[in-house]
Structure formats: C-alpha cells, structure tokens
Deep mutational scan, measured.
Amino acid sequence: GIPATNLSRVAGLEKQLAIELKVKQGAENMIQTYSNGSTKDRKLLLTAQQMLQDSKTKIDIIRMQLRRALQ
C-alpha cells in the first residue's frame, strides 16, 4: 500500500491541482475575451497568455509529484 504520509501529500497535491486547473480555465477564458478586443486589450491578452503558460507548467509539475507520491 501507500504510506499515510504520502496519502496526505496526495490530498494536498490534488487540492493544488484543482486550483491550478481553475486558474488555467480562467486564463483561457481571458484569452478568448481579449483576443478579439482592441489594442488596449493587448497587454491583458499577453498577461493572460503568460498566466496560462505558468499554469500549464505548474499542472505538469503537480502531476509529476502526484505520480511519484503514488508509486
């Protein structure tokens, strides 16, 4: 079985993952909103794209940590 310490770690990672998935969803929504907007929305679009990139990276890292914890 999986050690108890790993189980609480997994629960924490799953919570983090859920949050990051919401951030990713929000960033994707912002990108959709701003991509057909005016030029003043360009900065917001770039910010949203950066957020999305960061979020995807975090999600990958969390998933990797989850896999390790579940081994």
Rank of each mutant, 00 (worst) to 15 (best):
I31S: 01
E28L: 13
M64E: 14
M30E: 03
P3D: 10
I31V: 08
I62M: 02
G26Q: 15
K22V: 08
R67W: 10
G37S: 08
K22C: 13
R63I: 13
V10L: 05
A69D: 03
K40H: 11
I2T: 07
S8K: 12
Y34C: 05
K24E: 02
Y34D: 01
T47H: 12
Q50R: 14
Q71F: 06
T57N: 13
Y34Q: 02
M51E: 06
M64K: 11
A27L: 10
V10F: 02
M51L: 10
A69P: 02
S35W: 10
A18V: 05
S55W: 01
V10H: 02
G26L: 13
Y34A: 05
E28M: 09
D54S: 07
L13Q: 00
Q50N: 07
Q65V: 03
I19V: 12
A4I: 09
L7N: 12
S38K: 09
I62T: 01
S55I: 10
Q16E: 07
M30T: 03
S8Q: 14
P3C: 15
K58P: 00
Q32G: 04
R42N: 13
L45T: 01
L46N: 07
K43P: 06
G26A: 09
Q53M: 09
E20Q: 15
R9A: 12
A27S: 02
T57S: 08
T47L: 11
A18D: 04
E28D: 03
Q53A: 11
T5I: 10
I62S: 00
I31Y: 02
S8P: 07
L66T: 00
V10N: 03
E28W: 07
T5Q: 10
M30G: 02
N6R: 05
T33A: 11
Q65S: 03
I19Y: 07
N36I: 08
L45W: 05
L52D: 01
T5W: 14
R42T: 12
L45A: 03
P3S: 05
I62W: 01
I19G: 05
D60T: 14
L7S: 12
P3V: 07
I2W: 13
R67M: 08
A4W: 03
Y34K: 01
A48S: 02
N29K: 12
L52Q: 01
T33M: 14
L13F: 03
M30Y: 03
I61N: 10
K40P: 09
A69K: 02
V10M: 03
K58Q: 05
Q71R: 08
Q53G: 03
L70Q: 12
A18P: 00
V10C: 13
Q53N: 04
Q25R: 09
E14G: 04
I19W: 05
K43V: 13
Q49L: 12
Q32A: 13
D41A: 03
Q32D: 08
N6A: 09
K56A: 04
E28R: 07
K56S: 08
R67A: 11
Q25K: 13
T39I: 10
R63Q: 08
S8T: 11
K43Y: 10
Y34P: 01
